[in-house]
Write a protein that binds this DNA or RNA. Structure first.
Lengths: 190, 190
DNA sequence: TTTAATTTACCGAACGTTCGGTACAATGTC
DNA sequence: GACATTGTACCGAACGTTCGGTAAATTAAA
């Protein structure tokens, strides 16, 4: 049955996000999913690595749906950015859920997730850059990168401090800040 | 004294920064330091945990010296912030070196480094906030938190993309951006 | 000042445990 | 009966840690 695997993946997401790849053990997975080793290896024959890959794919699709999709809508750039920020707040559970891009970036050169993680990050930056160019922003790529930095760092700060407020505040102001000084969407300070 | 404890710590820093706590094995440590396992236990009787703690303490002191100290100088707020950014660029090797605050934030509640890491982050935010208040900034705490987010996220982006440029650009603009709209240190846009 | 005693720094081998992974029989479901 | 799913027992490898012991430096006693 397909549900079982998808259901397992949904639970696996939390484990890998919380403990990282090396910190996630099979017994931990077994405990958190309620599945025995045999069941896990039935659904993921290649073992732990396949589980992590499945989680990565699942989150990648979710990210596209929840965060990137609002950027493709046919509305004002500012509204699209707001849509993305709402998506980010949901996707990262108000900053409480770690980003696998950050978590799986550990391990130096020999990490097996470097490339897909890098591509995902680049895609995000490019999507943002496109909107900012469209809105007439200068240094669009730099702005896009800095927005991604802000979000990634926001996740860390949130988790370390155990407070979701800074993350949500930051997200709320991100669209305005990104468009600051843009030509087609200028802000008049009262 | 052939290999001092401090010398070992200096080499341990890179290992823990690169591989995280769980990803750092004793054999890896042994290889990177050139010390046998028993020698490591001679310098750090409590083992891996003590090594990580020693690294944490060492980096904490270094951070205070290189990053926080410039904030206490007797100059203009903007110059102090510039000093901090120079310190950050050095401390994080242009964004190539991970921050243990982020790396050791993994592991959920049961992580043994949560508290010291949290305190270090709070101290950083408070130092920044003080400067921003002094400079007459509104929402000083929020600005301070967002600056820390920017730096933390910048490290992740740098390491994932393998490009130090975005991090250095971000640092270069951080002081101006932080003081934007402040009363005592306003910026005249030409 | 020689020498004996102690401490310091270091090592590889081995410990018990847990790791990720496998084999296979037993169960459930159609 | 066929096939997906699971529980149990088990594997070699790697984990963090401890062991017994060596070589050299330091200290103490003669």
């Amino acid at each position: 049955m397909q549900t079982s695997r998808d259901e397992a993946i949904r639970k696996l997401i939390k484990v890998f996000r919380t403990y990282g790849y090396e910190g996630t053990t099979l017994s931990l997975i077994s405990k958190m999913t309620g599945l025995g080793k045999a069941s896990l290896y039935h659904h993921f024959p290649k073992g732990k690595q396949e589980m992590a890959e499945a989680v990565l794919v699942h989150l990648y699709q979710m990210f596209g749906e929840i965060v990137l999709k609002p950027l493709q809508e046919d509305t004002l750039p500012r509204d699209r950015l707001r849509g993305m920020c709402e998506g980010l707040n949901q996707f990262y559970d108000r900053g409480q859920a770690a980003c696998l891009i950050a978590v799986f970036s550990l391990g130096g050169e020999e990490s097996m997730f470097r490339e897909p993680v890098k591509r995902a990050l680049q895609e995000w930056v490019e999507c943002l850059e496109k909107i900012l160019l469209e809105a007439g922003c200068d240094r669009a790529k730099q702005r896009a990168e800095e927005a991604v930095m802000q979000v990634q760092g926001g996740l860390i700060v949130t988790q370390v401090l155990g407070d979701t407020l800074p993350f949500e505040k930051m997200l709320a102001e991100l669209p305005e800040k990104l468009l600051e000084g843009s030509q087609k969407d200028s802000i008049m300070v009262s």
